[in-house]
Amino acid sequence: MVYQLHAHIVLIPRYRRNVMTERVSDEIRSALIEVCTRFDSTLDAFETDGDHAHLLITNAAKVALSRLVMSMKTLIAMRVRAKNWPEVREALWGQHFWSPS
């Protein structure tokens, strides 16, 4: 029997700050594609709107969705923070990028 899970995920930056510029969104998309490839999942749709990102993911259900999302949030945060872009640095202080939700 084969299972396929479709998930609509909304990711919100810490303090719901408006940090989703074009270059941040491009970096997020790149990280999402890398994580999806690693977990045999597919990024079907991706959109950002300044203070949040919408993802539509297709997962083969052999990996827990929580583990997939955790990996996505971790890789995105590391990559975006490493770029040290002013729009992110000035809006988000500390080490966190995503809201804990």
Results as ranks from 00 to 15, higher is better:
68 L>D: 12
65 L>A: 03
3 Y>G: 12
45 A>L: 10
11 L>T: 07
74 T>V: 05
32 L>F: 04
56 L>K: 06
13 P>A: 10
66 S>P: 03
45 A>I: 10
67 R>W: 06
4 Q>I: 13
33 I>W: 10
91 A>P: 02
3 Y>N: 14
8 H>F: 06
93 W>N: 09
17 R>W: 09
38 R>C: 15
34 E>M: 15
86 P>W: 12
33 I>T: 14
62 K>G: 09
84 N>G: 05
63 V>S: 11
61 A>V: 06
80 V>Y: 02
29 R>K: 13
72 M>K: 06
86 P>R: 15
37 T>I: 08
41 S>K: 12
39 F>S: 12
46 F>H: 13
30 S>Y: 00
94 G>S: 08
35 V>L: 14
84 N>W: 07
76 I>N: 01
52 H>C: 12
100 P>S: 14
69 V>C: 00
5 L>V: 15
35 V>N: 09
48 T>Q: 08
91 A>S: 12
70 M>L: 08
46 F>A: 07
74 T>R: 04
100 P>H: 12
6 H>F: 13
46 F>E: 04
47 E>C: 09
65 L>E: 05
94 G>C: 08
98 W>T: 05
44 D>C: 13
79 R>C: 05
53 A>D: 03
29 R>T: 07
19 V>R: 00
70 M>G: 11
78 M>T: 10
99 S>F: 07
82 A>T: 12
64 A>W: 02
14 R>V: 14
21 T>E: 01
19 V>D: 00
64 A>T: 14
82 A>M: 08
21 T>P: 00
53 A>P: 01
38 R>K: 15
4 Q>D: 14
87 E>S: 07
8 H>C: 06
92 L>M: 09
37 T>G: 09
86 P>M: 11
22 E>N: 03
65 L>N: 02
9 I>N: 07
72 M>W: 13
28 I>K: 00
58 T>P: 03
91 A>D: 02
101 S>M: 11
52 H>G: 08
24 V>G: 00
7 A>P: 02
40 D>Q: 14
71 S>I: 05
42 T>C: 10
32 L>P: 02
2 V>P: 15
88 V>L: 08
76 I>H: 01
97 F>C: 04
